[in-house]
Amino acid sequence: MERSQRVSLLEIFKVFFFIGATGFGGGMAIVSLTERVCVHEKKWISMEEFMHGLAFGQILGPFSLNTCTFVGYYLRGPVGGIIAASAFIAPSFILICLLSWLYFTFHELPQLQSALNGTNPVIIALIIVAAVGMGRSKVKGNEAWLMALAAFAAAALLNASALTILVAAAVWSLGRSWYRREHS
């Protein structure tokens, strides 16, 4: 995609700060907001390139942040990527610092305790719904189910650490992918 002039770093900062401040809902809500702003309104990046960034963004860490980094890099190289990522995180960072300060300062307030007691079961519901959603889209076939069950059992019943389980699964999965590539 041809760009008539370079986008300024300040402009990148402003746009991603805006996305980071208004994208309530997280995850895909952020991605669709980023797409609307960067692909359709600003015409900074083509839809195809944007989709590549989204695909690569799934590898490590949160894809909402990674997609912002990708677009920033596309516009202005590494500095652009870092500015886009920082600007996107900044509003949430400020909000969390404020909430953490309130939380640890007014910990003892009975009203706050009551309110948070209401949220605890809902947080667990949220985690269950996340597991179900991921399970539906990512766990296909007997082998995948076996891996999911083994990870569940190791973590829930044997109290194995999540890190150990992840590393073991990664080694297993890398070995399988490698084997398949060499023998096909």
Binding site: I127, M134, G135, I165, S173, R176
Partner: peptide
């Protein structure tokens, strides 16, 4: 492909966290 193969373990871990 490695990443896709690893995801079932993540699902198991998240369920175990709940």
């Amino acid at each position: 492909t490695t990443l896709d193969g690893l995801l079932p373990a993540v699902v198991g871990l998240v369920a175990a966290a709940a």
